[in-house]
Lab assay of single mutants.
Amino acid sequence: NITNLCPFDEVFNATRFASVYAWNRKRISNCVADYSVLYNLAPFFTFKCYGVSPTKLNDLCFTNVYADSFVIRGDEVRQIAPGQTGNIADYNYKLPDDFTGCVIAWNSNKLDSKVSGNYNYLYRLFRKSNLKPFERDISTEIYQAGNKPCNGVAGFNCYFPLRSYSFRPTYGVGHQPYRVVVLSFELLHAPATVCGPKKST
């Protein structure tokens, strides 16, 4: 009989979030998941669920729940959905087409922007091929755009693959930082360890 609440607040209220290319994953298990708490945590810009209804979450049980978190800019949030393409979905964080879970995003301009520009958040701009779903690539190998090998040196047709967002508070919403948490629900042929409040007794 599990009584402890799932530590969603640790994920959502973390002081620092990860850069999207090096997104963070927390496995959540053996706890009571009260998803209604999430609705009250922040004024969400996005709370979209796929393959599951957000209002039914509190009635369900899962084997595992994974919470992935990272920062992107406002106009990239739409890429965090099944079947999307674009720089983020292709080279940084890719959801599977049959994704079961929820994408939660909110504006973090007050936390993640600086007047002089916050350069701490990076994204991958160049990659030889698209990522597979939930693949994480943290390599910093020089990207070869031409025929000549780069031998690890940046220059003509040889690019450092990561680029930094420079978040400034005066930017338009599309270029402001957004914190994203992706909850993916895993149903294996194994005992369910993460249940809503109704199912945990």
Rank of each mutant, 00 (worst) to 15 (best):
P82I: 04
Y159V: 01
V103K: 02
G74W: 03
D112C: 01
G152I: 05
R16H: 15
C61G: 07
S139E: 09
A145L: 04
V194W: 10
V20L: 02
L162I: 14
N130G: 10
K114R: 13
L111I: 14
Y50F: 11
G101S: 01
G83K: 13
T85G: 11
K94Q: 05
H175M: 01
S166F: 04
L183P: 00
L188V: 13
A105W: 15
N24F: 06
L125D: 01
T46D: 10
L125Y: 10
L57Q: 08
K114F: 07
P54D: 10
Q84S: 12
C6G: 06
G152P: 05
L41A: 14
S108E: 01
E10F: 07
V153Y: 12
V65I: 15
R163A: 15
N64E: 14
R25H: 07
F134A: 09
Q176R: 02
D75Q: 10
V52M: 11
N87T: 15
A154S: 13
G146K: 02
D90R: 13
R179Q: 00
A145G: 09
Q176S: 02
A105T: 12
K114P: 03
V65W: 06
R168I: 02
F185V: 08
N24V: 09
V153C: 07
Y66M: 11
R163D: 08
Y159C: 00
F160S: 11
F70N: 01
F156V: 08
E10R: 09
N13S: 09
T193H: 12
T100Q: 12
D75C: 06
D98K: 11
I28D: 01
S113I: 01
R73Q: 07
D97T: 13
I80L: 07
Y66D: 08
K56H: 12
I88T: 05
K94A: 07
F134C: 05
P161Y: 04
D9Q: 12
S139D: 09
Y21H: 07
N130L: 12
C150W: 02
L122C: 10
E135L: 05
L183Y: 04
C49V: 04
F134W: 13
K94H: 09
G196A: 12
I2Y: 14
D137Q: 03
H189G: 14
H189K: 15
Y35P: 10
N58E: 14
L131C: 03
F156Y: 07
T46W: 11
T55R: 13
I142R: 02
T170A: 09
R25S: 05
H175Q: 02
T100F: 15
G152M: 07
A192S: 14
F185T: 07
L183A: 03
F126S: 03
P149D: 13
W106Y: 08
F8L: 13
G196F: 11
C150V: 00
C195Q: 08
Y178D: 01
C6E: 05
F126I: 04
C195N: 07
G86Q: 02
Q84D: 03
N151T: 09
N130P: 15
E141W: 07
R16Q: 15
D112Q: 01
C158T: 01
T55I: 12
T55V: 12
V32C: 12
E76T: 03
G74R: 04
N13W: 07
N87A: 14
K132Y: 10
S129L: 08
S129P: 11
A145R: 06
T170L: 04
P191V: 11
V65K: 05
I88C: 03
G172Q: 00
V77D: 01
F17H: 03
N109A: 07
I28Y: 15
T46C: 07
F160D: 11
V180E: 00
N13F: 11
R136D: 02
S200L: 14
G117L: 03
G83L: 10
V115W: 12
N64K: 11
F44W: 14
L41S: 14
G155L: 03
D9N: 13
Y119M: 09
K94W: 00
T140G: 09
P43K: 13
L111P: 06
S29I: 09
A67D: 00
V65G: 12
Y123D: 01
D112G: 02
L188P: 12
Q79F: 05
A89L: 03
R27P: 09
A154C: 07
Y165V: 00
G83V: 06
G196T: 11
L5T: 13
N13P: 04
T3E: 12
T3Q: 12
N130H: 14
F45N: 15
L41I: 13
V180R: 02
Q144R: 09
V115Q: 11
L187C: 11
D9T: 12
R16D: 15
F45K: 15
A192N: 13
Y171V: 02
P43Y: 09
N1E: 11
S69E: 03
I138R: 08
S129T: 15
Y165M: 02
I2F: 14
N120L: 09
A89Q: 03
K48T: 09
P82Q: 02
S164F: 06
R27A: 11
N157A: 02
A105E: 01
F70L: 03
L162D: 00
L60K: 10
K114G: 06
S164W: 06
N40W: 09
R27K: 15
S166G: 15
A105C: 07
Q144S: 08
E141R: 10
K110C: 06
N130D: 10
R127P: 00
C195T: 08
R168V: 01
A190L: 14
V37L: 14
I142N: 03
S116Y: 08
D68M: 05
G174E: 06
A89G: 05
G117K: 04
S116P: 10
H175S: 02
Q176I: 01
K198N: 15
A81R: 08
G196V: 11
E186T: 11
T193D: 14
P82M: 03
T85K: 13
N24G: 09
N107K: 05
Y39M: 14
T193N: 14
L162S: 02
F44A: 15
L95Q: 00
T201Y: 14
L125E: 01
N58Q: 13
V32Y: 12
C150D: 00
G51I: 04
S53L: 10
S69V: 04
F47I: 14
T15H: 11
P149Y: 08
A89N: 04
A89T: 00
T193E: 13
T201V: 14
I138W: 06
Y35V: 11
G51K: 11
Y121W: 04
N64H: 15
P54R: 15
P169N: 04
P7D: 15
K148H: 13
T201S: 14
F185K: 06
I138L: 14
T55F: 12
L122Q: 14
L60V: 11
N24W: 05
T63V: 10
N58P: 15
N130Q: 14
V32H: 11
V20R: 01
Y119Q: 11
L60E: 10
Y159Q: 00
D137A: 03
L187Q: 14
Y121F: 09
N24D: 14
I28L: 14
P96Q: 04
S19N: 06
L131W: 02
E76L: 04
N13K: 10
K114D: 08
I88K: 03
L125V: 08
S69N: 06
L122N: 12
A22P: 00
R78V: 10
Q176H: 04
S113D: 00
A192I: 13
A18Y: 08
R179K: 03
T100W: 09
A145E: 04
G174W: 06
Q79V: 03
L38N: 05
S36I: 06
I2R: 14
S108I: 02
S108Y: 01
C102W: 04
G83H: 12
S200W: 15
V153F: 11
T170R: 05
N30T: 09
A145I: 05
N13C: 07
G172L: 00
C158M: 01
T63N: 13
V11I: 15
P197Y: 15
S29H: 14
F17E: 03
K199S: 15
F17G: 04
N120F: 11
